[in-house]
């Protein structure tokens, strides 16, 4: 994959190999088919056509806004920012429950940070809706259903920038 790499602070440690760890972990649980991570050759690219201060920004999360919907039934969707729950459901997602916790919503939902940046004139506005995409075993659900639904919502909301924050 062709990337440019930048660093703000230096990397003292080798990043954790999550793909390898996850594979071994599921093997230990007796799953006979290893999860196949998305692996794409090309990278789509859209250059921002205006300054940040004129941009409408949204965010997309994998933490679950409506935890009453059973895990396997959850679908991608768009939600009003001013009706955001105080807490998202995170217990069914894979994250490091030993090292940390998710009691601070803003550690994985960038709402307050974006609102402050809008107030300070760094960005133009925070979009009225944010978006949820479930972490799915099925790549086709994400590709053919969730991602297009969120794309349409973002286009309708005239979003310029989307920040994605997977847990």
């Amino acid at each position: 994959m062709q990337y440019e790499y930048e660093t703000e602070g230096g990397l003292e440690n080798e990043p954790v190999k999550y793909i390898e760890k996850t594979r071994s972990y599921y093997e230990a649980q007796g799953f006979d088919r290893a999860y196949k991570w998305a692996d794409n050759a090309g990278i789509p690219w859209h250059r921002l056509s205006k300054p940040l201060i004129e941009c409408n920004v949204t965010f997309i999360v994998t933490a679950v806004p409506d935890g009453t919907i059973p895990k396997l039934s959850r679908q991608g969707g768009s939600f009003a920012l001013d009706e955001m729950p105080d807490a998202f459901r995170t217990d069914e997602l894979s994250w490091d429950k030993q090292a940390t916790h998710t009691r601070d919503r803003e550690s994985y939902i960038p709402m307050v940070a974006l609102q402050q940046l809008a107030e300070e004139g760094v960005i133009g506005s925070v979009s009225a809706r944010y978006h949820f995409v479930p972490t799915e075993y099925s790549q086709s659900n994400t590709l053919n259903s969730d991602a297009p639904a969120i794309r349409d919502a973002c286009l309708a909301d005239e979003v310029d920038i989307a920040i994605l924050v997977p847990l």
Partner: peptide, 29 residues
């Protein structure tokens, strides 16, 4: 995959995360 879909339709995207190898493999802008 969602980032790739948006980017292909004229919305600039950025991911903030902690799983380097997963994101690197998926190919995001």
């Amino acid at each position: 995959m969602t980032a790739r879909e948006l980017e292909s339709h004229g919305i600039a995207t950025v991911i903030i995360g902690s799983g380097l190898d997963i994101v690197e493999k998926c190919g995001v802008p």
